[in-house]
Design a protein around this nucleic acid. Sequence first.
DNA 1: CGTTGACTTGAACATGATCAAGTCAAGTGG
DNA 2: CCACTTGACTTGATCATGTTCAAGTCAACG
Lengths: 248, 248
Amino acid sequence: MNLARTSSNFASCADCNIRNRAVCATCDSDELSRLEDIKYYRTFDAGQQIMFQGDEMHFVASVVTGAAKLSRTLPDGRIQMLGLLLPSDFIGRPGREHVAYDVEAIQDVTLCCFRRKPFEALIDVTPHIGQRLLVMSLDELEVAREWMMLLGRKTAREKISCLLSLIGRRTASLHLQHVGDGLSFEMPMSREAMGEYLGLTIETVSRQMTALRKDGVIEMTGSRTIAIPDLTVLMAETGDDTDGGVLY
Amino acid sequence: MNLARTSSNFASCADCNIRNRAVCATCDSDELSRLEDIKYYRTFDAGQQIMFQGDEMHFVASVVTGAAKLSRTLPDGRIQMLGLLLPSDFIGRPGREHVAYDVEAIQDVTLCCFRRKPFEALIDVTPHIGQRLLVMSLDELEVAREWMMLLGRKTAREKISCLLSLIGRRTASLHLQHVGDGLSFEMPMSREAMGEYLGLTIETVSRQMTALRKDGVIEMTGSRTIAIPDLTVLMAETGDDTDGGVLY
DNA sequence: CGTTGACTTGAACATGATCAAGTCAAGTGG
DNA sequence: CCACTTGACTTGATCATGTTCAAGTCAACG
């Protein structure tokens, strides 16, 4: 496993790809330059652990590129993924000394980091950061509650359908890979990670993927390359209202 | 079903029982008086619906007394409870036009309400409210994630044990009803509500309660009067680390 | 060509859901 | 006071969904 690489200010905030969605989104140019003074970049390879539950939290960060997962492990080893961190998402909680969850890169990741103490000091004098953090936290709370609904009440098939439509729609909105009514994308996580996210075993994930394929809801060329011929068909499998929910 | 009763300013903020835990906790006297100008109280009977998913959100509120539940229903009728609202908890999301979840009183409830628009305007000029709201949202997020762990990975017996120890410890901290190592309390919700919270059916809830009773983990005199002879024994059934987690 | 890791498939099993009765205490009306 | 009803809870029998354990496939890589 490689060490994380650190480098300073290799990109200007002004032309950052997450400029208008991240924690800095509503900062004015003055606030932005003060953030810029304390930022530094770090990269992590896929599979590398970014933070360990219980460790001291030295920095908070925005995801710039790649994807990471938030998870917690029970004493006997059962794992539940608690969140998916994608570009513009925020890692860490200001005001907390210790890390509450494990954070692991599931793809190569670039983070825009801020040492925690200076960042906390900056919040107090920069209202736009606190306001933005509130909106982002409330959004995260809605996502978490949507996921509670899924974990508590949905069947394995519905869970898989939800995840696929979530990832599918998200990547479609990024890359605009529409093919008629359908779309295709690369799954950014292993079957194991899918199971950790959905509260299922890897075998159940695999079986339900096969079942959805046999029923013509999805097409697979290689285990992670997914095509959805008709999104409405997939949506009908999620158990949700057909007109679509919140979920990112 | 009775109508909700409305009355204005029957208590002064200064000697309110949730003064130092609610959204107003960090307000100075000036900010507090501006909040006081727009507040009004409403009460709801147990079982009465406070807000309906999808309705326009006319007000936000703090729970002053009693208990309410946050829940969502799937199109086919499956229900999942998403949060338990106790005194000092905040209801509603500033900036949102519509209600995202059903809110229902599970005991008689008193709310300290603020019409949404004036409250939103107040946030912008009252930094302490926004800051407090951020901390409360982050706390709620941690509770929601703890519950995701429970819903996704815990067994029925562990789920019931978690809920009992949660309610038990919470009421103990309020009323200090310790009896040696143990404690006793009244369950504030029906078996049905327990099932909705834990992602279980009412029958499974009942069976696991019986099983815990037969194993001597809990004692029951009447279906809602619970005694816990030894809290460490109950904690050992939760699947969590023995040194206790976050959970409220 | 053998090894490895990710994924799939199968058979047996177990946990919790479903369907159906049954208990029990608190009303309600004769 | 006694039947009758009602609602909340419990219990039992059966079923189904998802888990567990085990083996097998497949592509990538040395």
